[in-house]
Amino acid sequence: MFQTVVECGTMAKASMQLHCVPSNITTRIKQLEEELGSPLFYREGKTLKLTPSGEIFLEYCHKILALCDEAKRSIHPDAPPSGPLRIGAIESSASTHLPRLLAQYHQHYPDVSIQIITGTWKQLLLDVSQHKLDAAMVAGAIDFPCLNKVEIYQENMVLIAPASMGIIRNQEDLINKEIFMWTEGCPYRAALETWLKLKHISLPITSITNYATIIGCVSAGLGVSLIPKSIYAQYKNLPQLCSYEFDRLATIPVHFFWHQKILNHKARDAFLKLLTLEFLEKNQ
């Protein structure tokens, strides 16, 4: 109840989701606060905001409910995968590699309610570590405390530029050019910055958190970017768009992360198995 109230923002909305009357939720939350000896919400009219104690208790709620789900799955070892599955993914994976896989997964496991959440690599891994996500697909050679990982595929990268800029042969050709990339921390951005540093070049980068906007800026003649080849394939017919491949910018690994302490999760494990088979077949 507490978690649902936090997600909905009001007792009334939470009661609709939980199919009970608001007064029941109000009473139960007050009992919980009395048991804990601390208020969990600031009450501003009908709107509720978490107190510092509420913020702390919410983190434990995620862990408690994740363990409850694991316990239920453990009781039925022979049952097929079922229940909710929350997968995080960077946008390039979610928009290009996952759609066909999700169709296959739903065909095999119709009782699993799967949810795909996109975000930055740091936020996705943080959410997995806090049990807000069951797993995440993230690019880059990254390690994260308390998470296991396995490489699932290599993302091929291309540098894109408008035809009006002429041919891009090396790092020097990017000097005085506008660069559009995702925010700091993005492994693709880091790869481009590392490549420029090989020639002792440091250039300002404009942060944009959407590939369609990045490609729109490049095709309009405003600058250049480094993007996954799978994303470029969706826009390669744009007349003003050119692509370039360089050895030091060739590939970036994409890993599948999950929490070390969540050992038994049939829906997640089935997803990983299907994911591994999908890219294993592509690489053969």
Rank of each mutant, 00 (worst) to 15 (best):
Thr183Asp: 11
Glu281Thr: 07
Trp182Tyr: 14
Leu277Trp: 07
Pro204Phe: 06
Ser53Gln: 07
Leu58Asp: 05
Val5Arg: 05
Leu238Asn: 03
Leu277Glu: 07
Ser225Asn: 09
Ile160Ser: 10
Gln123Glu: 13
Pro228Met: 15
Leu67Val: 06
Pro77Thr: 05
Tyr211Leu: 02
Thr209Gln: 14
Ser23Gly: 01
Ile231Pro: 10
Lys149Met: 04
Asp127Met: 08
Lys197Tyr: 11
Glu59Phe: 03
Ala94Gly: 12
Leu198Ser: 13
Phe180Val: 12
His108Ser: 15
Ile87His: 01
Ser92Glu: 05
Pro253Glu: 05
Thr183Pro: 01
Pro204Lys: 09
Lys261Glu: 12
Glu184Pro: 05
Leu226Cys: 15
Cys146Trp: 06
Gly9Phe: 08
Glu172Gly: 15
Gly216Thr: 01
Ser93Trp: 00
Ala135Gly: 09
Ile90Phe: 12
Leu58Cys: 05
Val5Ile: 14
Arg100Leu: 08
Thr209Glu: 15
Tyr109Thr: 04
Leu275Tyr: 00
Lys177Val: 13
Gly140Trp: 09
Thr51Val: 00
Gln104Trp: 03
Tyr153Asn: 06
Thr251His: 07
Leu124Trp: 09
Glu193Ser: 12
Tyr235Cys: 03
Cys146Ser: 14
Asn156Leu: 15
Ile214Leu: 09
Ala163Asn: 13
Leu238Gly: 05
His62Lys: 09
Leu241Ala: 05
Val5Trp: 10
Glu178Arg: 06
Ala135Val: 01
Tyr235Ala: 10
His76Gly: 08
Trp258Asp: 00
Pro187Val: 06
Lys282Gly: 03
Glu193Thr: 13
Thr26Asp: 07
Thr51Phe: 01
Asn283Asp: 06
Ile208Arg: 09
Ala220Gln: 14
Val21Phe: 00
Gln284Leu: 14
Leu36His: 06
Val5His: 09
Ile90Met: 14
Ile214Thr: 11
Tyr105Ala: 03
Asn264Gln: 13
Ile64Glu: 08
Leu65Arg: 14
Leu98Arg: 00
Leu226Trp: 02
Pro99Cys: 02
Pro22Ala: 06
Pro187Leu: 03
His131Trp: 04
Thr276Leu: 10
Arg28Ile: 00
Ser219Asp: 15
Ile168Thr: 08
Glu59Met: 01
Ile90Glu: 15
His131Thr: 02
Ile75Tyr: 09
Leu124Pro: 08
Asp269Thr: 11
Ile160Val: 15
Ala12Ser: 11
Ile160Glu: 02
Asn210Arg: 10
Pro39Trp: 04
Cys61Lys: 08
Tyr211Pro: 03
Ile152Trp: 13
Val112Arg: 01
Leu50Cys: 00
Arg169Pro: 04
Ile227Trp: 12
Leu272Glu: 01
Glu7Val: 04
Pro110Gly: 05
Val218Leu: 15
Ser243Gly: 01
Ser129Asp: 10
Gly223Arg: 07
Tyr211Ala: 11
Ile56Tyr: 10
Ile208Leu: 12
Thr206Met: 11
Trp121Phe: 07
Leu274Lys: 06
Thr47Pro: 03
Asn264Cys: 10
Pro187Thr: 11
Val254Phe: 03
Ser129Gln: 14
Ala94Lys: 00
Val158Pro: 08
Glu59Asp: 12
Met1Asn: 04
Leu272Lys: 13
Glu35Gln: 14
Arg100Met: 07
Asn24Thr: 13
